[in-house]
Amino acid sequence: MYAQEVKSTGQGVKSLEEMEPDERAFQEKINAEIKIEPKDWMPEGYRKTLIRQISQHAHSEIVGQLPEGNWITRAPTLERKAILLAKVQDEAGHGLYLYCAAETLGISRDQMTEQLLSGKAKYSSIFNYPTLTWADIGAIGWLVDGAAIMNQVPLQRCSFGPYSRAMIRVCKEESFHQRQGYDIMMKLCDGTPEQKEMAQDALNRWWEPSLMMFGPPDGDSVHSAQSMAWGIKQNTNDELRQKFVDETVPQAEYLGLTVPDPDVKWNEDRGHYDFGELNWNEFYDVLKGNGPCNKERLDARRKAWDDGEWFRDGLMAHAKKREARKMAAE
């Protein structure tokens, strides 16, 4: 997850015969499923697409701390508080590995941070929705982490070694998060009528944004073909979205909740659930910055960065003093 609408910068897919020797060797490696490592030759478009995708993914983890962090101080039991803290901490950890993976491609973490804070770089628009009740913490774990896993499992096989390895670690933790989210939902659905209503309301609000996490329909998704040829992307957006719906609808039924889409029904012929059209205007609108929390999320990240400047500078000043003292003593 968390990299929707990554436009790859390749010029369309070339055949092996059209390629120069370097590029041909590169493509043959990918075709043979040999990982590309940071020092290997790679086309500029591949590098740029990956920097965009990995940094967008990292930014999503960082901004993703905020909607859930919103409930840490209000978690209803000591156990839930600890689980939520650990989860948000994992997200910060994912952000860290991903920034490191992107750095191997020749961009610094400070540059990426600058791009996030200036609004130039995107992050997953799912995090621009507010967490209004405790059930939202359950719904995010269940649906948002569920969709993330669906997206990330194939990325474990991504052609770029550092990204692939980061995804292997991240996926293990995400599936744990999803189970915890579902566990919150189960507890609510087994609880009082008010708790069950809270759970249904959360599903109503998070369902559609979660389906949009897979990105626009294949017909509208630009440069997907190049990303697939480069082994950056393994499945189309619509394939993954369908897989998510197929997996999630029975889970909602098990909880006794209703998926907020009257068109959801099992299609015997296709062997999949059908589902209704999504409101893509909303998706593009949130992506443009007009979602319910876009401003709050960026403001919070900017404030953390600006307020922390003296702290970072203070540590640098100390390191310099220490170095100078060491030199003087020698």
């Binding site: 840490i72 803290l85 901490q89 702290f311």
Partner: peptide, 21 residues
């Protein structure tokens, strides 16, 4: 725990969450 997501550097988000945990 209220610092989670708001610390001055990412490493501190992680370290403070550890202390809170």
């Amino acid at each position: 725990s209220a610092w989670c997501g708001h610390a001055p550097v990412l490493e501190e988000d992680i370290a403070l969450a550890n202390v809170a945990l």
